[in-house]
Design a protein around this nucleic acid. Sequence first.
DNA 1: TAAGTCATGTAAAAAGTTACATGATTCT
DNA 2: AGAATCATGTAACTTTTTACATGACTTA
Lengths: 208, 208
Amino acid sequence: MSGEEDEALRIRTLGYALLGLLARRPLSGYDLARQMKEPIGYFWHAHHSQIYPELAALAAAGLVTHEVIQQRDRPDKKVFSITEAGRAALRRWVTEPAPIPPDRSDLMVKAFSVWLADPEAAIALYRGLEREHLRRLASYEEQRAAIEARHGTDVWRVSGPAFASYATLRRGIQYEREYAEWCGWMAEALERGRRGGEADSQSERPVN
Amino acid sequence: MSGEEDEALRIRTLGYALLGLLARRPLSGYDLARQMKEPIGYFWHAHHSQIYPELAALAAAGLVTHEVIQQRDRPDKKVFSITEAGRAALRRWVTEPAPIPPDRSDLMVKAFSVWLADPEAAIALYRGLEREHLRRLASYEEQRAAIEARHGTDVWRVSGPAFASYATLRRGIQYEREYAEWCGWMAEALERGRRGGEADSQSERPVN
DNA sequence: TAAGTCATGTAAAAAGTTACATGATTCT
DNA sequence: AGAATCATGTAACTTTTTACATGACTTA
């Protein structure tokens, strides 16, 4: 052991996201950036300014290689492929313990202080968000129909990529449905409060 | 207009989270840090190293003030209170349009490549996460029972802080329940695949 | 006596976003 | 003629995390 590589370069989540795409097919940096504009697995996105350096890091670690493809009429491109080492690293990583990170949501910080808000404005906010989440839900449902039509029972073959895509899509659908549901609940509660015509607006009895 | 303050210092989400706590009661930096170790509204946390500078920024903007409380037997502390300007800023912010930020989840990146994984290891991962989310769910349900017992119908008075806490708690409960459900679905799918004894493990037909 | 709580800060590192930079071709 | 797509990068900035720093008192 040369004692040089065992303090191995740590790969970040973004790196594994890229490996995950390259494990399915070779792609250029531009293609990867395009795919990651819409979040991969519905829950991770990145800009090209992050992707190009990350690809360089992965290449330095020997997890990807690239070949330059010359094109007439448009700029040359580097097409990246995952290496055996890359596939092995990815395979190991996907079953490593995943500590649940604290989720951040702007909206929940707003909700935490919604008691101070103008009710009409708040209702508008939550109804608007409900609509947007329902819109996304509809789009995801369409994608589900498409993937089911195209792959059929193949989405149940857990050793194929279609299953993995299907699984993350299911989570996306669930997430949007529930988020919309919560926004609707919130709006209704605020509407009920409005109709009820509550006592005094600035309130006491603090709570955590 | 002095033309100096209209390019107002932009307050970040963390700032509003702190204002949200201070709108309920005055607190020291230490208290705020303690509360934000567990995420406020279940969806935002911060370290003290972020909180102290943020409080300084809020003070500079005139949104909070503090008084020094001398204590024997323990270090003096600065107790921060929200100002009228702070309350107004918070009140405005909570109904401002909230663009839905792309969510990030490590686990979904792993799931996206689960088709490469050792099934046993993957099952263990998802069952473990399912347990953890169920654990959190149980804890949140207890908190709901406690808040309902303590505040009764008050949780429905939308102009009181109890309602806001209750609303975010509901979202937390929903989130943990659904996440656990999804992990369970995933584990079952992998278990079914294992029993089925699938064909070849390295697969073709790439999918987005 | 060692670890934990109370209490407040600064510094450095990591990750992510926005802006800068260039240039040919194709679509409206 | 202007905008969009293809294609790859660098630089600056913002936000968050981890580590450094200090010190008294309390609990195991």
